[in-house]
Structure formats: C-alpha cells, structure tokens
C-alpha cells in the first residue's frame, strides 16, 4: 500500500501531509507537523500521555491510524494556548503545582479540556473518572484533581457576565 496524503484540521488550521499506511495520529502530529506536546509514553494506549481531542473527544493518539480520522478536527495542547495566554486549566496546573516531571501533563490537560467542555461543573468523582486513563508517576494524582476542580471554578467565574 502506498503512502497517501492525509488532511486534518489541526487546532483550527487545515494541514496536509504524507502518511505511510498505518502511521499513527501521534506519529503524524509529532513528526510530520512538528507538534510535540503529545508524548509517546507506552505506545499501547495505557498511559494517556499522547491524548489529543479528535472531534472534541479525548483519544489515545498512539492507537489511532491517521487514515481512519482523515478530515477530522484535532486539538492538541498547542491549540489550547490561544494567543499566547495560558488558559484556566494550564494556569491552574501551575498554581496548584499539578506537574512535576511534566511527561503526563499534556495528556492530563487535554482530558481536562474535554471534561470541562462537556461538563463545566464536574464533581471530584467526575474529574477522577476523566483522568483515570492517564498515568502520573510523580504527583500521586491529588494535585492534578485539585487543579482541574480549580480550573472548572475559574472558567465558570469567567463565564458569568459582570
């Protein structure tokens, strides 16, 4: 099977690149498009550090053959920092000290973005469930859960017109 040209809408911008058969979404993002925020951890869909949003849903991009999502809208951590400003999730991760070595952080932030998109007022259990597919070996998870709760609070406050 020959390589083919694949088109995606990545962080709002249409991008085209050549993909070998079976090339993963993760490999294409990192190697063809130079978007290296999503990390290659286990490469088996178990650790979650490669998480990106495909049509708004969090997906383990290491398991997604890119041709199966051709034409789709993909959001990566690079697309979260709109206009160079950190968003509520990112700034809450800093303020709540929810990152240590940083290898899981990109995936954690993306699952948080997806959660807050569909549920602006999550319970702690909702947050725990959302990050349950993502492994962190440094923090013990607690600061991450607290940061996402804090981000949700900040985003709700911002949404209230003054």
């Amino acid at each position: 099977m020959p390589s083919q040209i694949v088109s995606l809408v990545v962080n709002g911008e249409r991008r085209e690149f050549i993909a070998a058969p079976g090339a993963t979404l993760l490999a294409c993002l990192r190697e063809s498009l130079g978007l290296i925020a999503a990390k290659r951890g286990c490469a088996q869909g178990a650790c979650g550090t490669c998480t990106v949003l495909v049509e708004g849903r969090p997906e383990a991009s290491c398991l997604v053959p890119v041709e199966t999502v051709a034409g789709a809208s993909v959001r990566t951590l690079e697309g979260v920092t709109a206009g160079g400003e950190l968003d509520e999730v990112q700034s809450a991760f800093i303020d709540c000290f929810a990152t240590q070595c940083g290898f899981c952080t990109s995936g954690m932030i993306m699952v948080a973005e997806a959660l807050l998109e569909r549920n602006p007022d999550p319970s702690e259990d909702d947050v725990i469930e959302a990050v349950s597919g993502n492994v962190c070996r440094c923090t013990g998870y607690r600061p991450i859960v607290i940061a996402i709760m804090e981000a949700a609070r900040r985003r709700r406050e911002r949404a209230v017109p003054r």
Binding site: G45, A46, E129, V135, C136, G140, Y141, R142, V145
Partner: peptide, 17 residues
C-alpha cells in the same frame, strides 16, 4: 510482559494525605 498489564494505583485509589 509490559507496563500496560502491571498494576498501579490510579487517581481513584488515592488516600487523602
């Protein structure tokens, strides 16, 4: 054979500290 089958506590298994 690999870490995907190696059990570790997830965010739902954490005690309060």
């Amino acid at each position: 054979r690999d870490f995907s089958a190696y059990l570790m506590p997830g965010p739902a298994d954490i005690p309060s500290q």
